[in-house]
Design a protein around this nucleic acid. Structure first.
Lengths: 142, 142
DNA sequence: TTATGTGTAAGTATCACTATTACATTAATT
DNA sequence: AATTAATGTAATAGTGATACTTACACATAA
């Protein structure tokens, strides 16, 4: 399964941006919060930029900003922006085409996997970055 | 990362066993159908044995068998039997505990990820090996 | 013009996965 | 009892993705 931590880190980044309402945040500062290096953060921000979720302000006083409202960024959008690999990997080499099972297994299993992926994505579509930020604000109060 | 193909291959194996009704199938023959080596198949069969989905008959004329009805083996059971890693990987190193976001992000995001995983698993629980084998029998007729 | 940050390429270490080789063990067959 | 056919598993190597680090070009505010 996908062992990339990008999805979790990207959610962390976006939530951090949502907490500062419009003030640019440096990759260095995000890196401190995530506990990694600034280059790793910038690599993920690059993907988020491409996906239209964030934008970057160059130069002194610059940093990363949300490109749209946190309420309009779903975890599904984040997932799609940073995850490369298929959720389910199938046979590395094509199965035997002259065997009854080998010739048909992919056609039979792929629809089931597609349904599972759709269910996952539907659920990821229900939570937004604003939800995460809101809950963190609640927790920070106590 | 290299995503595991074990789930797809394990489903292939079980479907093949479901097609031969009670007759043991050699790992060698399964390997031919999957287009890999017999040792890889035996490695996956070892996990399926541990999970109680299959059993093996040693010695000459032996091979792998389903340990219960194909209708009682859900894709969810297969998934659980062969998949090692968490569906969603979180931060490799713990985030900054003194930052508002870092200290709380995992507590906030984990419930959302758990819901997504539950949705995925619910969907995988709806399809059985018997379903796959049945569809393949249909396809093989034409 | 200088200082501050982003963007990105190149190189490294690590890890999971798959394939391969090798061998011990078990059981049916003769 | 000996032979043969099969599983079970350890050890090893190759591959690919991830994440970390270093380095430097580029953009912008002051």
């Amino acid at each position: 399964m996908p062992t990339s931590t990008r999805f979790a880190v990207a959610s962390h980044i976006l939530t951090a941006l949502a907490m500062t309402e419009g003030k640019p945040v440096r990759s260095e500062d995000i890196a401190t919060s995530v506990n990694t290096s600034a280059v790793v953060i910038r690599g993920i921000l690059s993907r988020l930029n491409d996906a239209g979720l964030t934008r970057s302000q160059l130069g002194s006083g610059g940093g990363a900003l949300l490109a749209r409202s946190a309420a309009e960024i779903r975890l599904l959008d984040v997932y799609a922006a940073v995850e490369d690999t298929e959720l389910f990997a199938v046979h590395r080499t094509a199965p035997c085409t002259s065997c009854p099972v080998g010739a048909n297994i992919l056609d039979v299993i792929n629809p089931a996997l597609a349904r599972a992926r759709a269910a996952l994505e539907a659920e990821l579509g229900k939570t937004t970055i604003a939800d995460l930020a809101g809950t963190i604000r609640e927790l920070a109060k106590t």
